[in-house]
Every structure is written in structure tokens, then in C-alpha cells.
């Protein structure tokens, strides 16, 4: 009994180490959360107060910034545009990533190594801004630079890391499934659609989250593609354009309000895909 009652002896070194670790985590947590808290509270201030007051808390709470965003900038249209393009990009890139990975993992064909090497090369060689003009020119030449198709086309390619994750995951799935399906008369594509795809759902969730986030936050190319097409603008472009030109002051509080609203869909997607996402990342790395 006495032994049970005795307190566990605290190791000073362990205590010190834990204190340092917790301190670092708290500091990292504050640094990470500060912009979010600043943005949430800043949207309740007037821009004038935001730019002149040293306090993070508003002196006087106002909903004017949210009202302005919802009333004046056709927020629902831009939100719809972003949502539509993001969802379409998720669907197309998922299709591309899973079919590519399935083919790489199950078929041997001439030039497979070369194609895979070229895919891999794009991960290491970033052409960056140099690709902007040729990409836009391609959209113009295809005649899809003035509609949703252009915006979807920009994002329909499968991210190479996702292809690799899917391929690695598929290698861990026994080919016996394919053989059994073949015996039952399934075609290559039907095996993909009815046997492989359901098993790839954690990978699909990873791709959905990353692609949705990427497209939802994309700015530069959507800005170029929608120049002169204000009805097609994505939310990010509309928000950045609140940062006015022509001599007026930038209404930072309004921008913060718009940013806060635009965070909602990404949070919903994260909540929906969270479990699958973590499973996908863990299993994609382990299997194969």
C-alpha cells in the first residue's frame, strides 16, 4: 500500500526537458495561431483602427466588413466559381492520378521507365513563372481562356507525389484481386473502377484535400485567365483585388473578412477528409 501511495520521483533532467519542449510547442503554437486570431479579430475593426491601433482586440466591434464583402463584391458568385473549379479539379486530377498509378503498377509497356522518369523530373525541376506565358498561350490557342474549362484545364493534371503515393499503395495490394476479377470477366478499366478505386479511397482523400486546397488558394494563373472576365473570377482573385489601385487606401479589414469567410470551405473539406487523409499518408508511405 505504502509503495502505491508513494509519489513517482520526478527526474529533474526529464522535467527540464519536458518544460523546454512544452515551451517550444507553446511558442510554435502562438506563432502559428497568431495570424489566424489576428485575421478573425481584425475583421471586426475598421481599417482605420486596424492601421492605427496597437491592440489586437477591437475597440469597437463592427460587422461592416462582412456586410461589405457579402453585399458589394458578388461574393456568392466568386465562391461558386472557386467551389466549382476546385471540385472539378479534384475529380479530374483524381481520375488522372489513379489511372496513371494503376497503369504504372499493373502494366509493363515500352517507355514506362522513361515516362516515369519524366514525371519524377517535374518534381525536381521547377520551371516556375517561365511556364505561365506558354500555359496561357495554350489556353488562348485552344480557345478556352474565357471560360470555366480553361480554369479547370489548368488544374486537371495529377500531382506527381500523389501518383507515386497511389502507385506505392497499389503495389501493396495483391494482384490476386485483379486475377479473380479477370476470371469473373472484368475488363482492365472495370477492375480499376470497381475493385481498385474503392481500395484507393485513402489516397483519393489525400488528393482531394491537397488539390482542393491548392486550387482554392491559387491566384496567379486564375488572375491572368480571368482578366477581363470578372464573372469568372475565383475568390482569391476577387479578394486580392480588394487591395485597390487608383489612389484609394487598401481596405485591410474588408480583406480580412473575405479571407475569414473563404477559410470555411477549406475547413469543411479538411474535417471531412481528415481521417482518410492521415490514413492515406501513413499507408501510402508504408505499403509497397
Amino acid at each position: 500500500m505504502e509503495h502505491k501511495k508513494r509519489r513517482r520521483r520526478i527526474n529533474p533532467f526529464e522535467f527540464g526537458l519536458n518544460t523546454v519542449i512544452y515551451l517550444i510547442l507553446i511558442i510554435v503554437g502562438i506563432i502559428t495561431l497568431f495570424p489566424v486570431v489576428y485575421s478573425l479579430l481584425g475583421a471586426f475593426k475598421s481599417t482605420q483602427e486596424l492601421m492605427t491601433s496597437g491592440s489586437i482586440l477591437p475597440k469597437q466591434y463592427t460587422l461592416d466588413n462582412y456586410k461589405y464583402v457579402l453585399d458589394k463584391i458578388d461574393f456568392s458568385r466568386y465562391a461558386f466559381n472557386s467551389l466549382f473549379v476546385s471540385v472539378m479539379a479534384v475529380l479530374t486530377s483524381t481520375l488522372m492520378a489513379t489511372t496513371t498509378a494503376y497503369t504504372f503498377s499493373r502494366r509493363n509497356f515500352v517507355g514506362k521507365k522513361l515516362i516515369k522518369t519524366m514525371y519524377l523530373a517535374t518534381m525536381f525541376i521547377g520551371a516556375g513563372a517561365a511556364t505561365m506565358y506558354p500555359t496561357y498561350k495554350l489556353l488562348v490557342d485552344l480557345g478556352i481562356n474565357k471560360n470555366y474549362l480553361g480554369l479547370i484545364f489548368l488544374n486537371c493534371g495529377a500531382p506527381v507525389p500523389i501518383i507515386l503515393l497511389c502507385e506505392s499503395y497499389l503495389k501493396g495490394i495483391s494482384k490476386d484481386f485483379d486475377d479473380a476479377a479477370k476470371i469473373d470477366g472484368c475488363s482492365f478499366f472495370r477492375i480499376y473502377a470497381q475493385i481498385i478505386m474503392p481500395m484507393l479511397m485513402p489516397m483519393v482523400a489525400v488528393n482531394a484535400l491537397l488539390t482542393f486546397r491548392g486550387v482554392w488558394n491559387s491566384y496567379l494563373m486564375p488572375m491572368i485567365v480571368t482578366a477581363g472576365q470578372p464573372k469568372l473570377q475565383l475568390l482569391t482573385v476577387a479578394i486580392v483585388e480588394l487591395k485597390t489601385g487608383g489612389g484609394l487606401a487598401t481596405m485591410w479589414s474588408t480583406i480580412l473578412a473575405a479571407v475569414n469567410i473563404s477559410l470555411i470551405p477549406i475547413i469543411i473539406v479538411y474535417v471531412l477528409c481528415n481521417k482518410q487523409f492521415i490514413r492515406g499518408i501513413a499507408e501510402g508511405g508504408l505499403k509497397g
Partner: peptide, 19 residues
């Protein structure tokens, strides 16, 4: 189409891509 500070780049891209 009311743009922000990026207006010059946008117009320039428009001319170079004939749009």
C-alpha cells in the same frame, strides 16, 4: 473589370497573348 495593383502585368499578358 476593376483590377488592383497587378493591372500592368495583366494588360501586358493580354497583349502578348493577343487577348
Amino acid at each position: 473589370d476593376f483590377k488592383g495593383d497587378n493591372v500592368t502585368d495583366l494588360i501586358k499578358t493580354g497583349y502578348t497573348s493577343k487577348s
